[in-house]
Design a protein around this nucleic acid. Sequence first.
DNA 1: TTGAGCGTTTGATCTAAATCAATTCAAGTG
DNA 2: CACTTGAATTGATTTAGATCAAACGCTCAA
Lengths: 234, 234
Amino acid sequence: MTSVPQHSCSNCSMREICLPMGVGKQDIDRLENLVQNSKIHHQNDVVIRQDDAFHTLYAVKSGMYKSVKLNSDGEEYVVGFHLPGEIIGLDAIYPEVYTSSLIALTNSVLCQLDYEQLVTLSASIAPLQHQLMRLSSKEINTTQAFQSTQTAEQKLASFIHNLAIRNEVRGFSATELHLAMTRQDIANHLGMAAETVSRLLKQFQGRDVLDIKHREMSILDPAGLLLLTGCAHS
Amino acid sequence: MTSVPQHSCSNCSMREICLPMGVGKQDIDRLENLVQNSKIHHQNDVVIRQDDAFHTLYAVKSGMYKSVKLNSDGEEYVVGFHLPGEIIGLDAIYPEVYTSSLIALTNSVLCQLDYEQLVTLSASIAPLQHQLMRLSSKEINTTQAFQSTQTAEQKLASFIHNLAIRNEVRGFSATELHLAMTRQDIANHLGMAAETVSRLLKQFQGRDVLDIKHREMSILDPAGLLLLTGCAHS
DNA sequence: TTGAGCGTTTGATCTAAATCAATTCAAGTG
DNA sequence: CACTTGAATTGATTTAGATCAAACGCTCAA
């Protein structure tokens, strides 16, 4: 983990997705001043430890992270995966401790924002305040969306579709995905066995919906994939 | 559905849970002025229709509501149940339409708040701004919490335990619960069959964890119930 | 280059919970 | 008050997906 002094929201390719969205030129430097030095992480670096006191929100600048919750039985649960432009830690505001650990899945960079300072600043920058609420709202939706899907097939299809959309929104490919996480991580996240993920992926391949080699996935038939989701997602 | 002109946050028994929490005496009337006339609803009244344009947040004053999402297949999904003091609509901020329909489960009352006005007001009342963020954060947690539970038994036990805690926080009984929703609603919400709910409740009764007659439930052994949850919840 | 160690795949078996099918119960209505 | 209707229970059967078990294939380090 290394510190990078230089950082800038105005030059960041994620500025239209992340917190700065809608913030005018005259205010963006006030936001930039608040962003702490970015941190570079490597695969398996633990960035946040569950139950640590919450003071800081994080924004993913590049790479990918996962959030993992450990329950009292010692069972792990993969809460989700975080792509560039996404804010991490919104769920920790209420309990004032982080509710899950954060782990880098690949070489990745995070921006740090002191939560108290951010809230104070947002009171005087309306677009920032709105974006903060929008991002919280979005997170509520994300978490709710998957609950409604029922079969393992629908869950996995929804997961892949969701990942593709998120990739596309970020200016990456909507059809060529690199899976930074293991099959076990996906399975755990979706509440199924890793074997089931493996078998379903093979089945999706057989139906020419997608092609997958190790961690590289091509979506051959996006419409077919959407059908597999049960159409529950947009 | 009837309008009630009189309303007051300062006299409301939910003020320490709801939006006014932490707002000082000098500011609370500014919040009260923003609260629209409360609406009285009866069982099965549809308050919000999914996909309608979002402008208003709601706070439950009394009674109970459920949120229901209809997916493109025509399948229903019960997103959750809303108790007094809870804010409804935070998930609609991002998409700018309500993502589910809201239905009264019993005679109930809602307070209405114009979202834009609330955000504007919160910029000048720091405790209100904080509470808005806290409530959003809480909602993210709530939605995440159940995902980690696996078996039907754990899910149902968690659901009952969660309901009991929420009741207690509101100054109601932690052991005597009235279930305003049907078994089918509970089952749908937890992603299982109504028959499974019925069988599990009977099993919980057999183990003397709880006693249930129709819609009235007594939790006889709260510690035993917590054990059944897999201890994943606080 | 070889071997160790994950991650992944594939196959066989088992089980929790769904589905199907009836019956019972409760509350409201003409 | 009987009658209707929706909710809840109970039992029998089926099945999706878990678990168990084994083999395979990368990747990395010595």
